[in-house]
């Protein structure tokens, strides 16, 4: 995998690029999907608020055709960063190891959109942590059996953190899984033009995500998102309503992930 060594996070942007690469894993009936991430320029931050490290899970990728029919993208099992359903994207600011690419295959077709869930669906989110296999076995991306995984984790140095995950999950204790779906799933479904899956890329605009945040004075956003105005606005940037924990208007108003040319 090629990495842009010269790019020094946090001054860059995340780009998801989906490109058609020749790969022996693909039969003629399928087309490869390779999704690359890079970072948008961030406003300069106080020294204590850098480096920025960003990690998030991407699940349930689909390509959608003009009739609105969604076809699942089958991710390539490639531990430690992805299994067939979920991938971990990791952009550490202070070291070079990370993962900026999600790859898989989809049946050939005419698609107009790429869709993915930012996070992990309920059915997978509260499995026995002892049996968690990569990429779901990262302690830093896990809260507890009851609350499940952190879907997205942004740490701005030691100044401010945003940890996104499901809230309102009920069970008898922190180490028991909930039987019913959490009250606020906080799963954003992101839809982007299919062109990003062929010759484009998707920028992830951290500036838009934290536009409402002053990292050196604001409280972290790590659970009770609806209680703080800044956290409500951070979720709003992802298209999520902090009060209900669900997409507002199918999350179409999200401002963080954006299609771009490569």
């Amino acid at each position: 995998m090629k990495r842009c060594r010269s790019l020094s996070w946090p001054r860059k942007s995340i780009v998801i690029a989906a490109l058609a690469l020749g790969s022996q894993a693909c039969s003629p009936a399928t087309q490869p999907v390779t999704t690359r991430f890079a970072l948008d320029p961030l406003p300069s931050l106080a020294p204590t608020a850098s480096p920025a490290t960003l990690r998030f899970y991407v699940s349930d990728l689909h390509m959608v055709n003009a009739h609105g029919q969604a076809t699942p993208v089958r991710l390539t099992a490639a531990p430690p960063y992805q299994d067939e359903r979920t991938a971990l994207v990791s952009l550490p600011g202070d070291d070079e190891s990370g993962n900026t690419v999600v790859h898989g295959t989809v049946p050939r077709g005419d698609y107009v959109h790429l869709e993915f869930l930012l996070g992990i669906p309920f059915a997978r989110n509260h499995g026995n942590p002892l049996q968690a296999a990569p990429p779901l076995d990262r302690p830093a991306m896990f809260w507890a059996w009851q609350s499940g995984h952190k879907f997205l984790r942004l740490d701005l140095g030691n100044a401010w953190s945003f940890h996104l995950g499901s809230t309102g999950c009920h069970s008898t204790s922190a180490v028991r899984p909930p039987q019913d779906e959490c009250r606020r799933p906080n799963l954003a479904r992101i839809r982007l033009p299919a062109a990003v899956a062929t010759d484009g890329q998707i920028e992830v605009d951290l500036g838009a995500l934290i536009a409402a945040v002053n990292p050196t004075t604001d409280e972290n956003c790590m659970g009770s998102y609806a209680d703080a105005d800044t956290c409500r606005r951070v979720l709003d940037a992802l298209g999520l309503d902090a009060g209900t924990g669900r997409c507002l208007a199918d999350c179409r108003g999200q401002r963080v992930f954006r299609a771009a040319r490569r």
């Binding site: 430690p80 942590p129 990569p134 076995d137 990262r138 302690p139 830093a140 896990f142």
Partner: peptide, 15 residues
Amino acid sequence: GLNFTASSTHGDVAL
């Protein structure tokens, strides 16, 4: 995590 420390890994995790 399993050992109440973030500096713990298991399985084939290389991260």
